[in-house]
Nucleic acid binder design. Structure first.
Lengths: 252, 252
DNA sequence: CATAGAAAAATAGGATCCAATATACAATCT
DNA sequence: AGATTGTATATTGGATCCTATTTTTCTATG
């Protein structure tokens, strides 16, 4: 339901203006900091909120997204909403029909399978590129996320922590384009992945596999890390497939 | 320059309404034909025209895209233009700054290199998945595109034919998500690829390598086709790198 | 003349209005 | 009753207007 969206409008993405720096005089500021000032437009805020709601599964697939409803939720007009919807459609998170509106995009079993297969290919390669660049700082961060994942009781947070763990390793690859694609493909299936983690016993398995990947990275064993990442994703995909086939069969 | 954009607005994407079928009575129509009616919005038209102009290099990188200028070019208001620009930004083809406008996105040497590396990974895999599904029809189509590529004198058409050749093989993979990513990544570097084909002697080499890939597909040699595709892309990337490093060095 | 600062023009973002289309529902006919 | 047609309502797409910000131009001053 749309009512489940976050408070909106009250949470601008802009950082606080650096009063202290101004009071101390501009010389106290590094010259580079001047151009950072870039407020988020209304469209940005709506886009991010909707994106988050979709990938976290708060908006069910097939649900209608009414422009004026969303606009009033965010205390804005329909123009920024339309821009946000247009961006979401470009990312494949929603589908729109002319004069009929937008609905949260659903994925067929085959599409989900394809995206998992794709992720296995890409993320294994990203890890392969990342391992040689990893230093103690990245490995420490990854270990923290790995432990956080194991220790978190609230299943609603697993998806986020799972992302953080993988991203913390992937960043060492220093491949912004790859990472953008990884993010986009994960966005598409994140809801299902979250379901798999909580509804099947995917959690324990993920915990073990994360530890294995992390160990391989610490050892500097590139091939092993890539192989384990690939297996991790394909395994989660297979578990999800059997789960979905059961539930979708049951609903017919 | 923007003046180089196509005539626009005069070319709706809708097909003609099937009068004959109506006069003969609805039973004469296949039931599937009814739902095709889906006109293109103004934003769609602007988006496609700008996308084409950017990937073909008609709009130089760094060039400003003024909303009202584009709007008057297409005889429309700024609203559809803004939607088109928003989509283009999501695809990485332009970059925008709040209150400052949009410019055609340029790529650094490193970014171009990364995208070529990425394409080599993905397209090799797509060919790998495609070869087992290829039949005489797809191979014939690919051969025609391959010959057209060799026989075409007008260098402005090489980019398009090059795309057609590769896509005709890739389609057999039956992986819509992969293909969408392939398309997006090719969009980002197509201008540079076109430059490489025409400005270096990339054409002859591409012709040879296309023939090799096609032969491997005809033989059903999956590994060879994947290997050659990978080499083809990486080779073009390297040639482009040296070319760009020369020209960019010369301009400083 | 050079430069800082103010005024003006240009341009993007957003709100509101109008048009086009779809959906729901009532009225009518067989 | 059931189908069909016309009408009202809802909703999206697009145009126009207003506001916020940037960029440019002009002007005053040293």
């Amino acid at each position: 339901m749309l009512g489940m969206l976050p408070p909106a409008a009250t949470a601008p993405i802009t950082e606080p203006w650096p009063f202290a720096a101004i009071l101390q005089g501009w010389t106290a500021m590094k010259l580079e900091t001047v151009d950072i000032r870039q407020a988020a437009s209304a469209a940005d805020i709506v886009y991010e909120a909707l994106r988050k709601a979709i990938i976290e599964g708060e908006l069910a697939e097939g649900e209608n997204l009414r422009q004026d409803q969303i606009a009033s939720l965010f205390n804005t007009s329909r123009i920024p909403v339309r821009e946000a919807l247009s961006r979401l459609e470009q990312n494949g998170l929603i589908t729109t029909q002319r004069y009929k509106g937008a609905v949260v995009a659903g994925l067929s079993i085959e599409e989900i399978e394809e995206i998992f297969e794709f992720r296995a290919l890409i993320e294994a390669e990203v890890i392969r590129l990342a391992v040689p660049n990893m230093n103690t700082k990245t490995l420490d961060a990854a270990r923290r996320h790995c432990e956080a994942f194991g220790g978190e009781a609230n299943s609603a947070k697993w998806g986020e922590i799972n992302r953080n763990f993988h991203y913390s390793l992937y960043e060492a690859a220093r491949r912004p384009y790859y990472l953008q694609i990884v993010r986009a493909s994960l966005d598409r299936i994140d809801r299902y992945l979250r379901a798999q983690l909580t509804l099947t016993d995917g959690m324990n398995r993920a915990r073990r596999e994360h530890q294995g990947i992390l160990d391989a990275c610490i050892e500097g064993n590139t091939d092993k890390a890539a192989e384990l990442t690939r297996d991790h994703i394909l395994g989660a995909g297979r578990a999800l497939m059997t789960f979905l086939e059961e539930t979708r069969a049951r609903n017919e």
